[in-house]
Design a protein around this nucleic acid. Structure first.
Ligand SMILES: [Mn+2]
Ligand SMILES: [Mn+2]
Ligand SMILES: [Zn+2]
Ligand SMILES: [Zn+2]
Lengths: 139, 139
DNA sequence: CAATAGTTTAGAATGATTATAAACTAATAA
DNA sequence: TTATTAGTTTATAATCATTCTAAACTATTG
């Protein structure tokens, strides 16, 4: 298990103990090369499917927030009844499929750079995010 | 009360009965020329301040959603534990002051038109919104 | 192994929002 | 006007995502 030792290192290097719960969540989140967008509910479902053992919901929340704090996950701004996270922590924009409730990454080249011409005294720009909502073609 | 009859008409024309609760909320939301961004909590607070009589929280929710359905209010996409509404129902972008938890409109001329070069088969773009998060200058 | 700090967990608590159902009221017809 | 109806308000309960709590468990270190 080459990957597993990678995750152990990743966690240790972040000051997080490599527990089996965290390693399992790492495998789900970071084992593939694709960006993964998810809610805690999504993640819990995947865990209970791919896993013999259960991980407590509190632990899933703890882990996701720990990973977010360490910069391995990013929270995404969409209006929903639940919070979404993103394994792509770079600054990027999204489609949001309102029917499927799924986020889709937009690549940098898919959107021209956003230039904000207004400034607010005493404030600086922290992030610029474009959210493109999608509906079915016929609607 | 010229305004009040205006609101009565507005409500009647929308098929909503002009109750005193709705008229009061109209005054708070639509009486000024400025865009008003608010959460239900904000609105409730203003109501209890500016008003002798109380309006039930359920009614505030009902009214806000009724107005939204009629196109007098728009829900705004930000990651927060509460939903925000906007009296500016046109398509426009926002600053979000993360410290004050306040939304600020960006005018059309403040942001160059956003051009999305990617398409998703079977889906069409419903809206494009930019959210610019602000932090204090020193941070 | 022993001591410690960090982690997991079930379950309780919180807080925004929605649902319920009874009381109330505006609109309409008689 | 009055009666009828449909729409509205309201207190309260229910829901649901998320956070808190405190006790049990475990990785780390000496
Ligand atoms: Mn978070
Ligand atoms: Mn709504
Ligand atoms: Zn993404
Ligand atoms: Zn606005």
């Amino acid at each position: 298990m080459n990957l597993n030792t990678d995750f152990v290192d990743k966690l240790r290097n972040s000051g997080l103990r490599p527990t089996k719960q965290r390693l399992k969540i790492c495998e789900i989140l970071f084992d593939n090369d694709k960006t993964f967008h998810f809610s805690v509910k999504d993640l819990s479902k995947i865990i209970s499917q791919k896993l013999g053992e259960k991980i407590s919901l509190a632990t899933v929340y703890n882990t996701v927030h720990a990973f977010e704090k360490k910069g391995y996950l990013k929270e995404i701004s969409i209006n929903s009844n639940q919070t979404y996270f993103d394994t792509n922590t770079s600054s990027h924009h999204h489609f949001f499929d309102e029917k499927e409730k799924k986020l889709i990454d937009l690549k940098n080249e898919d959107v021209d750079p956003i230039n904000i011409k207004k400034t607010i005294p005493g404030k600086k720009i922290k992030s610029i995010e474009v959210l493109v909502k999608l509906d079915p073609d016929n609607y």
